[in-house]
Each structure stands twice: as C-alpha cells, then as structure tokens.
Simulated scan of single mutants.
Amino acid sequence: MRRVIRFACAGDTLYGTLDAASGKTGLLIVSGGNEIRIGAHRGMALLAQSLAARGIPVLRFDRRGIGDSTGTNGGFLSSGPDIGCAAATFSAEAGIERLVAFGNCDAATALALFGATAGIDRLILANPWVIEQQDDLPPAAAIRARYAAKLKEPREWLRLARGGVDLRKLASGLAKVAQPQAEEPDSLAHRLSAALSASRLDTTILLAARDNTAIAFREGWDGPVAMCDTDSHSFAHQSDAAWLEEQIATAVMRA
C-alpha cells in the first residue's frame, strides 16, 4: 500500500511517500540534485513500487525546499538533518528493524557524509558526485576516457583529417587533462572517502560505466564497484532499471 506521510525537520515539514511491505529491512531513497521524490522519468517511484512488491518497504521524501516540503533548499551538503528525520520517521512508521539507504549522484555523496549519524545500517551509492570545477567542461577523467575511446576508432582519425573536429574544443580538453589533478585534503572526494572509512558502514557502489560523474568518481576510488554498461546517469533505460533493482534488492537482503 502506498501512502503520503509528512514529518517535521528543523522547524519545517517534509513530505514523503511510503510503499509499505512485510519486510523488516527497509529502503530509504534519497533524491539527487533538485529532483522531487518521484525521481527522473518516475524512476524512483517505479523502483519503490517494484521493491515493495518483493516485500521491501520503501520511503522516498522531498528534502527541505524541494517539491512538497517547506523550507529553504540548501543543497545536498545541508541535507544531513533531512536524512536523519526521514530515517527516524521511516523506522517508526514501518516498524523496520534494519535500514538501508540508496542515493544517486549528490544524494549518494550526502549519504556517505551523513548516513552513519542518521542511524542507517547499509549504504547503496550510485554515481557519487565528487566533481568540483569552475569551467563547463566534463571532468578530466571523463575527457581522458572519451579520448581513449576515440583513438581506437579509425573513423575518428578520418574526421580529424577532414577537419570535422572542433580544434578549439579539442585544445581546451587537452589543456584540462594536462593540468595537475592533486586531491586537496578538504576536497569532496577526500571527504567522501574519509566518511566511509570512519563510519565502517557496509557500502555497495554502483556505477554507470560511461557516465561522466561515475568516471570522475572511479578515478579516485580503489574499492570494489558494480558496473552497469550504460551511459545513463539515472539508469533510465529499461535494462538499466532492471539491473539497478536487482543490485538494490540483493544489497537489502544482505543487510
């Protein structure tokens, strides 16, 4: 059964959607970016419906300033209280005994940073956001991956010879790749890794193989990952969605 619930958070009111089920391990879905709880292409709503049919209760919610929820949108780095309030409400409403949380993009990063203090038992992080840049180019790791793929294609060499390549864009990309990529101690990537190490939470990392955000994360991560052969950041293709559901269901059952 699906129902809308509301709960308090730091003086504001958050709205969530609870898909009830018989299981005692629940899944909390945290939305990425400024997406409302339904998710891109209704992906999170459909995922919740499918998992609930498998016996897994699921809660999705809008953080402060997003969708139906009141308050000011402070971005994912201010979402710790929202995640904590949603986790506590979910446990009380659904009577669950263990809590798994899933997030994509900056929601994954938020869970890495705040999940342990929210009382979450296991994390599922998809395409964690670690990009900090001042230009509109893709991250250096993604540029390198793209160029490496193109160098293997004879038709790309032919395009270059015929003048079909934007040389100014190519030069900008090469210049970015050539810049030193030293990781600062206070960088988002460093903070994410440090938070996961300190919390010692069981964590599953899911990556879209040809997504720029995932490529940037993968460059600085030496732990195990599960890779989906897709370029869709939100796992929007039908086969991607099926893969994502199986990965999440497996992680929940292990929790």
Rank of each mutant, 00 (worst) to 15 (best):
S79L: 02
I205P: 00
S31W: 03
A110W: 01
V100S: 03
I5M: 06
A40C: 05
S197Q: 14
I131A: 08
S197W: 02
L188W: 10
A86R: 11
R168D: 15
A141W: 00
A94G: 09
R37P: 08
G84K: 12
L174N: 03
E153Q: 15
E97D: 11
F235P: 00
A108W: 02
V252Y: 02
C105K: 09
V130H: 09
S50L: 04
I56G: 03
A195S: 14
D211L: 06
Q181S: 05
L158M: 12
A40K: 06
E245R: 15
L188S: 06
D231Y: 01
A53Q: 12
H41A: 14
R42H: 04
P139H: 03
G43D: 12
H233G: 07
T89Y: 02
L137M: 14
L51Y: 09
I248M: 04
S197T: 11
D222E: 15
T117G: 11
W157V: 02
R64S: 02
G11P: 01
G163R: 07
A214K: 00
A48W: 07
V252C: 10
G55F: 01
G43L: 10
L158T: 15
A116W: 06
L160Y: 14
G95I: 08
G84C: 08
E97H: 12
I29Y: 08
R210N: 08
P57Q: 08
R210D: 07
R6V: 00
A161Q: 13
W221L: 02
Q179E: 12
F76R: 00
E35H: 14
